[in-house]
Amino acid sequence: MGKIFTVLLVIVGFVYAKPEIVIEDPWVRAVPPTAKNTALFMVIKNVGDDPDTLIGVKTDISKMVSIHKTVNQNGVMKMVHVDKLTIPPNSKVELKPGGFHIMIMGLKRGLKIGENVKFTLIFEKSGRIILEAPVKMK
C-alpha cells in the first residue's frame, strides 16, 4: 500500500510540478543613434518547482533577436550564440552586461532613453510572456 502511495505521489508530483517564470528589472541599453545593435537585460526567475527554458524572443524594433553570451577568453571578448537558456526550478538567471544577454540586431529605428520597448519571450513550458523594458543609459 505504502509503495503504491509513493508511486502515486511521484505521478502526482510529476503532473503538478510546473515552472513559474517571473521577469525582474528588464532594460534595454541606450546606444548611439547610429548603432544598429543593442541588448536586452533582465533577471529571469523561476519560482516554480520545474525547470523551464527560454527558446525564443520576439520584438518589432529589430530584424533579428537572439540569445547571446559575452565570454572573456584570454582577454578577448567573444560573442557566443546560445540556442536556449534553461532556468532551473527555484533559481534565477541574470542577463547582464558582459554575460548573458538578448542581442537585438539590426535596429529598425533609434531608441529614446526612457521609452518602453515591447518584447515577447517564448518559454518551452510557460509559453509566451510579454514584457515592456525601458531604455536606460547604464
Binding site: 541599453r29 548611439p32 548603432a35 545593435n37 559575452t70 552586461p97 558582459g98 544577454h101
Partner: peptide, 13 residues
C-alpha cells in the same frame, strides 16, 4: 567598433 552590441557600450559608459 560602433556596431558592438555589448562590450563597447559598457566600456564607453
Amino acid at each position: 567598433y560602433t556596431f558592438c552590441p555589448d562590450v563597447c557600450p559598457t566600456s564607453m559608459l
